[in-house]
Write a protein that binds this DNA or RNA. Sequence first.
DNA 1: ATATAAATGTGATATAAATCACATATTATG
DNA 2: CATAATATGTGATTTATATCACATTTATAT
Lengths: 226, 226
Amino acid sequence: MKPDCKFCKMKSPAAELLKPDEIDTLEQNCAQVKFSKGETIFREGTFATNIVYLRAGLVKIHMKGPIGEKILRLNKAPAYLGLPTTFGDRVNHYSATAITESEVCFISLDAFKNFIYSNGNFAYEIIMDLCRSELADFQRFTNLSQKQLPGRIAELLLCFSNHLFKSNAFELPLSITELANFVSASRESVSRQFSELSRLGIIELTHDKKLTILRKDMLDKISTNG
Amino acid sequence: MKPDCKFCKMKSPAAELLKPDEIDTLEQNCAQVKFSKGETIFREGTFATNIVYLRAGLVKIHMKGPIGEKILRLNKAPAYLGLPTTFGDRVNHYSATAITESEVCFISLDAFKNFIYSNGNFAYEIIMDLCRSELADFQRFTNLSQKQLPGRIAELLLCFSNHLFKSNAFELPLSITELANFVSASRESVSRQFSELSRLGIIELTHDKKLTILRKDMLDKISTNG
DNA sequence: ATATAAATGTGATATAAATCACATATTATG
DNA sequence: CATAATATGTGATTTATATCACATTTATAT
C-alpha cells in the first residue's frame, strides 16, 4: 500500500525532523503493511533488508534461546523495530511478531542511511532512541536476573499497567506460556503465581484474559522485595 | 592531561571519520585520564557530563540491582563507555570501573553532539556501534536467562578465551564474587563450579587467578547443553 | 610485621522453581 | 460439528542452587 508520509500523523520523532524533500524520498521508499495478531513481521535468521517502523499496534521481539523462545521486549507504536538487528548484522538476530493488529512501514535501508548521513538532527534522534532502549533493557535484564519469580511477575504486570496500557485494567497481551518465556520461568510456575495473586485478591483475572490490578500497593511491594 | 588526537593511534572507528578541523575541535574538548585497577570511571546516580572513550584497558559496566551489584558487560579498548547512559538520561544508570590499568578520554558532550549533527559518517558509525552492542547484549541476556549455572560459566569462560583474550590461558579479570554477579549466581555456587571444572580436568586455575582451558571441547559442550 | 578485613572453598541444609503427571479448558481445523 | 491440537490449572516429586556455617587463604592497613 502506498503511504502518505507527508500528511502522516504517526511519524516518528526522527521523521518529524526530515526536510520536505527528504519526506518525499521517504514516501517513495516506504511501503505500509498491515499485520494481524500472530503474524510475523520479520524473522530471526532471515536477511534484514528494510527499516521497520511500527506505526500502530503492539509487537513482541523474541529470539531462540538454548531451551526455547525468549521474549526480549514488547514494542508499542510508535517505534522502530529492530534497528540494531537491521544495522548490526546482515541477518536478523531476533524476530518481531504482531500481538495486536498492527501497521508497519518498511523503509528502504539506503534511504534511511542517507537520512542519517545528510540530516544530523535525524541521526541524533535515532541515537537517542537507541540509547533510551538500551537503558530500559539493562534495567529490565538486571531485575529479571536478580528477582525471583513473584517479583518478576509483579514487575511485568506493573510495567503493563504503568507504561503499556496506563490503566489498572487491561487484557493480557500475551498467553501464560509467552509470559513464562518473557520472565524466564516455566509456564506451570507462572500459572501458579497468577492463581496465588488472584487468591490473595491482588489481581482479578478472567477466563478471557482481562486483568484488573486490585492492590497495586501489594504488587509494588512484591516487585521491590524480589 | 592534554591529548594529541591528531596523531593518536587509538582513535575510535568513528573518530577516524572526523575531518581535520573536527579533530582539532576534538583535541580542544578532550581530556585524557589514567585509571588504575578498581577505580571508578563514572558512577551510577551521578550526572553524565561527558562522553567517555576507553583508549586502553579493560572496564566493567555494572549497576545496582534489587539484591546487589550486577555486572552487565565488560568493555575492552577501544570502545565508548556508556553512550546510552550519557545520551539516554541526564543521570548515569550504571557505573564503569577499571579492571586493569586504563586510559580514558573524556570528551565534551556538546562537541560530540556537534560531530553527530555535522558529520553523517561519524553519526552512522556511532549508530552501528550502538546496534552491534545491543545485539551482543540480547544474545548474552537470552543465554544467561535460559542456561543453568554450568552453562553460564562455560559460556563466560569461552567468551573470555575467544573474544577478550584470544588465548586458552589468561588471568581471570574478575574475582569469584564478581563472576558470580556477572552470571547472576551466588559466589559459593560459582566457587563450586570452578572446583568441579578443575577436578574434571577441563580447566586449571591457580591461586593467583591464572586460568588455562585444557578441554575447550568440553566447555563448548557444557555451554551449549545449558 | 601484625592485625584486621575481605575473599574463597566446602560441607550440610533449606528452598524456589522445574519437571512430571494428568485433568480440564480453549482454540483451531477438516 | 466433531476431532484434533494447543493452552491452562494444579498436585506430587525432584533438582538446581541459595543459604548457612565455618575454616582458610589472601589482601589491606596500621
